[in-house]
Design a protein around this nucleic acid. Structure first.
Length: 314
DNA sequence: AATGAATGCAACCGCCAAAGC
DNA sequence: CGCTTTGGCGGTTGCATTCAT
C-alpha cells in the first residue's frame, strides 16, 4: 500500500507552517501549479512531506486527492462514453461500491468520478422509482432497459468504426476498455445465436471481466440477431431483446431515442414499441414477480407503452 | 428577470490497514 | 509488540451551475 518513493530526507524542506494555517476548500491555480511542478520534479508519494516541501499549506491527503482526481495528466475529461457507462453498471453489479476497483478498469477515470456518476445518475433513477438502488428490482431494471440501450449505443459506435477512435482519444491505455467492455457484452447472449461483430473486434477473446453470473441467461438477451425479422429492421428500431415471459421466450423490440443513453432514454416520449404482443402486458415476468408491470406504471417506465411482445417463431 | 429547486462535482471526513519506528 | 505515520477507500458535504417556474 505504501508508495515506493524513497524517503524524503529531513531538512530538505523549508520549515513547515503551523497546522492551523492549513488551507481548505477549492484549489487555486497557484496551488495547482506548485503541486504539478513539484511532482514533475520529484515524483509522487510521501504526501505530507510533499505538501510541505512544495510549499503548499495543504494536508498530504488533500494534495494526493487533488493530484489523483484532477491534476494527473492521464485524467480523462468529459462525459462518460456508453462503453464506460456500461462497464460501470456491469462492474458495480459485480463488485458493488468498490469504486477504486471499478476505476481500475476505466483508464483515465477516477473512483471519485465513477462514484459521483453512480450517485447522481444511477441513484437518481432509483429515487424516481422509489426503489433502493442496490435492490434486486433496480438491478433488473438496469439489466432490462438501461444496459440494452447502452449496448445499442456501443454497437452503433462500433459499427461506425469509431470505437477504437473513441477509446484512443486519450493517451490512456484505452485498449483495456475495449478488452473489458466489449467482450463482456457477449455474455448477454446466452442463446445459441451468434453475435454479429460489426467492429471486427474479436468477441471470442473474452476478457477477464465477465458478467454471466450477473446477467442470468434466463433473463434477458440483447444482441444482434443473425436473422432479424424484416419488420424489425426498420431504421427506427434500435433494440431487440429476448425476454423470458412466464418461461416462454419472447422477443421484444424497442425504439430508443439516440439523443441520450441514460435512463431518461426510457421515457415514454422517446421510446416506442414495435411489433406485437399476443399476451397481456401485465403478464410479463421480470425476474422475481411482476414488479415492473405492477408497480412502475406511474413512473417514467410504463411497460404498456414501452414493450410490446412478440412470441418467438412468429 | 428573479428566484427557488435540482443537479453535478470537487473536496473533505472518518475509518482502516500496512509499514515504520 | 505497541504506537505513529501514511496511503487508500467509501461516504458525505458544500457550492457553483443549470433548470424550472
Amino acid at each position: 500500500m505504501r508508495s515506493a518513493m524513497p524517503p524524503v530526507t529531513k531538512g530538505m524542506c523549508p520549515p513547515s507552517e503551523d497546522d492551523s494555517e492549513l488551507r481548505r476548500g477549492p484549489w487555486t491555480l497557484e496551488e495547482d501549479t506548485l503541486l504539478t511542478h513539484y511532482i514533475a520534479r520529484h515524483g509522487e508519494g510521501r504526501w505530507n512531506m510533499l505538501a510541505k516541501c512544495a510549499g503548499l499549506r495543504r494536508t498530504g491527503k488533500s494534495c494526493r486527492l487533488r493530484w489523483l482526481n484532477y491534476l494527473k495528466p492521464d485524467i480523462k475529461r468529459g462525459n462518460l462514453t456508453p462503453q464506460e457507462q456500461l462497464l460501470i453498471l456491469e462492474l458495480h453489479s459485480k463488485w458493488g461500491n468498490r469504486w477504486s476497483k471499478i476505476a481500475q478498469h476505466l483508464p483515465g477515470r477516477t473512483d471519485n468520478e465513477i462514484k459521483n456518476y453512480w450517485r447522481t445518475r444511477v441513484q437518481k433513477q432509483a429515487r424516481q422509482l422509489n426503489i433502493e438502488s442496490n435492490s434486486k428490482k433496480f438491478l433488473e431494471a438496469v439489466r432490462c432497459f438501461w444496459m440494452p440501450t447502452l449496448l445499442q449505443k456501443v454497437e452503433q459506435t462500433s459499427s461506425s468504426s469509431s470505437l477504437k477512435e473513441m477509446s484512443s482519444q486519450n493517451s490512456a491505455p484505452s485498449d483495456q476498455l475495449l478488452d473489458c467492455a466489449i467482450p463482456s457484452l457477449s455474455t448477454f447472449s446466452p442463446l445459441p445465436n451468434k453475435i454479429t461483430d460489426r467492429s471486427n473486434h474479436s468477441f471470442e477473446n473474452s476478457s477477464s471481466v465477465t458478467s454471466q453470473s450477473l446477467y442470468p441467461t434466463d433473463f434477458i438477451n440483447t444482441s444482434e440477431q443473425t436473422e432479424i425479422p424484416e419488420h424489425l429492421t426498420s431504421p427506427n428500431v434500435y433494440g431487440h431483446a429476448t425476454v423470458y415471459n412466464n418461461n416462454q421466450i419472447v422477443n421484444a423490440s424497442y425504439n430508443i431515442d439516440s439523443s441520450g443513453y441514460d435512463m431518461e432514454g426510457f421515457s415514454l416520449a422517446s421510446m416506442s414499441a414495435v411489433g406485437s404482443y399476443e399476451g397481456s402486458p401485465s403478464e410479463c415476468q421480470m425476474g422475481e414477480g411482476n414488479w415492473i408491470c405492477n408497480e412502475m406504471t406511474d413512473t417514467l417506465w410504463n411497460m404498456d407503452d414501452i414493450w410490446q411482445f412478440r412470441e418467438l417463431g412468429e
